[in-house]
Nucleic acid binder design. Sequence first.
RNA 1: GCGCCCUUCGUCUAUCGGUUAGGACGACAGCCUUUCACGUUGUAAAGACGGGUUCGACUCCCGUAGGGCGCGCCA
Length: 472
Amino acid sequence: MSSPVITRFAPSPTGFLHIGGARTALFNWAFARHTGGKMLLRIEDTDRERSTEAAITAILDGLTWLGLGWDGEAVSQFARAERHRAVANELLQRGKAYYCYCSPQELEAMRARAEAEKRPVRYDGTWRDRDPKDAPEGVKPVIRFKAPQEGETVIHDHAQGRVVIPNKDLDDLIILRSDGNPTYNLSVVVDDHDMGVTHIIRGVDHLTNAARQTQIYLAMGWQVPDMTHVPLIHGPDGAKLSKRHGALGVEAYRAMGYLPAALRNYLARLGWSHGDDEIFSTEQLVEWFSLDAIGKSAARFDFAKLENLNGHYIRHTPDAVLLKEFLAFLPHVEGGPEMLKALEGGRMAAFAKALPGLKERAKTLVELMTNAAFLFAVRPLALDDKARALLNDEGKAALRGVLPVLKAAADWQAPALEAAVKAHAEQAGLKLGKLAQPLRAALTGTSTSPGIFDVLEVLGRDEALARLADPL
RNA sequence: GCGCCCUUCGUCUAUCGGUUAGGACGACAGCCUUUCACGUUGUAAAGACGGGUUCGACUCCCGUAGGGCGCGCCA
């Protein structure tokens, strides 16, 4: 029996959960679910300067909103520093690491020199074989990993294939700072090993780290986890994701009115595929997910496609579920709390009634909210330019014509109203559009809305008739 | 500069040596229609370039160009 799969998502809490991180989490999650394994969460908070509680909260919230639950408690990497130090010392003991007394200034100078001479920027190994007795007075040393200088390090990667890095291009990295704190590459290896991580799935920006980490695993005699480095997500212009396009926290996507299910579906299709399948449920994603189906090239983030998918999800989400999602969304958007108040203040029924018509024409929850505004408008309605144009003399005349018909309606339900208005139109020799548009303008203050008979019904007899009479 | 990686329609992708190179988003046009959407039909749209290998390359190899990532006492 093979050991159960354990993946991990390991963000550093220096900012929100951005879209690339979200996808990495999704892949880790999907793979763990697919294999019946676990996804662990580790917060890489060893940078005490930049790590914040707020960021941790944002990341946890983001994952939760996206529906990507993790197994067990989130692990703080910083809290494990003692263990990392112990391993650094063990490496020292084994002759796989050494003290280096170079000052940051010296290293800076070393780098500057290399750059000026157009040589590769690497630590030159000054203290690699030097006797610690030569150590300068009062300098606190760092511990460097004694990386192999010859041969090559091979990474067997599900997405990248077999990647070979010449060892001469990897220098002796610092694993323990002069203040006694471990650095990233050491901590990651120790934690992944201790946490029993079997599969590492992360961004390709870690590929070089993968080589260095592999060397540390080997030096410790530990088994190297299975690795997958997924390509990065770029902005629409092919360059790095900037704040302008996609480098937003997932909470920004929530505020833009995207559904978690739609975002999951969209993200899954960025760099991963299952034949020609475009729209699939999360259950299907879990069922189909495979590391080997992850591509190698970077993908550009395309809002148009996300929006299309989101529209699909909005249309296909059952009303009751969508209503819940919408209510949960409102606190996160401008004007949302006010609408929430209005809904809870008695407009909920009308909104729920209007929802089927509303959701057909919204690509985001923000659009849904905008399109629902007519429900909450107060008389006399403010008209937009198009609505005003529709209510010209001809429009008003049409309105005057139907008003009695509507007043006479015994049954204030869309089908009955439709029948009555259509009969009137026919009798008056008017095309339905000539009637419907002025009605819409007067009823909603705009030129677009759900079906006009639904609008009539949803508004209710009194309110509708009053709105129609207002412009006359 | 050094190392690694990438390159199929505008975008996301399928193809895993033999296809009229498929799908989706977007675009455009038509249909549907009370508006907007939805839906539907159709059109345009791609193998970066140059060499090999092969009976046959988008698929394999080499080179070129372009792009990305990495090269911290950050993670």
